[in-house]
């Protein structure tokens, strides 16, 4: 009797499409067009990425509250990845960063391609490196890079 196992492929799928809603839709469409947007709250704070609600008052903040912010900003905290995992956006060692873009009051989470850990510090200025092919998603920002790098 030969020994073998019966096998069958099983693909787990989430077979639905979803709208990103009235605010995030504008945010990712903006990224496709190389513009970063945030929402201005009632008190004047600019939140990036934008929210549908005011985090201070919980009031509805629609697309009218969207404002453009800069594509460069300041690192407010960071972590250095010595050995990237398969899920990570860069193959070589890189930094996870919180970047407060010019005109924003809250930082955005993303990756920073800085070459080496010594090149990264809190307070350093960085800029968006846009992806070649942009489809309307957070990965339209390929990563950040030190300001003036390209």
């Amino acid at each position: 009797m030969t020994e073998h196992s019966l096998t069958a492929s099983h693909v787990v799928e989430y077979d639905y499409t979803r709208s990103l809603g009235p605010v995030l839709s504008h945010f990712v469409t903006g990224l496709r067009d190389r513009v970063v947007r945030g929402t201005r709250t009632k008190s004047g704070r600019v939140i990036v990425p934008p929210l549908e609600f005011d985090p201070d008052t919980y009031e509805d903040l629609g697309a009218d509250a969207l404002v453009d912010v800069g594509e460069a900003g300041v690192v407010t905290s960071w972590a250095w990845v010595h050995e990237p995992r398969p899920s990570h956006p860069l193959d070589q060692p890189f930094a996870w960063v919180l970047v407060q873009l010019d005109g924003a009051d809250t930082p955005l989470l993303h990756a920073l391609d800085a070459g080496g850990e010594d090149a990264v510090s809190t307070g350093m200025r960085v800029q968006v490196r846009w992806a070649q092919d942009r489809v309307g998603g957070i990965r339209d920002i390929a990563c950040f890079e030190p300001e003036g790098a390209s």
Binding site: A79, A111, I138
Partner: peptide, 21 residues
């Protein structure tokens, strides 16, 4: 699932950012 998961970040990376802050 929209703005963070696609980055591929994991809880260790997030904890490291919190740690430095």
């Amino acid at each position: 699932p929209y703005l963070v998961f696609p980055l591929g970040i994991d809880p260790i990376g997030m904890a490291a950012i919190q740690c430095r802050a």
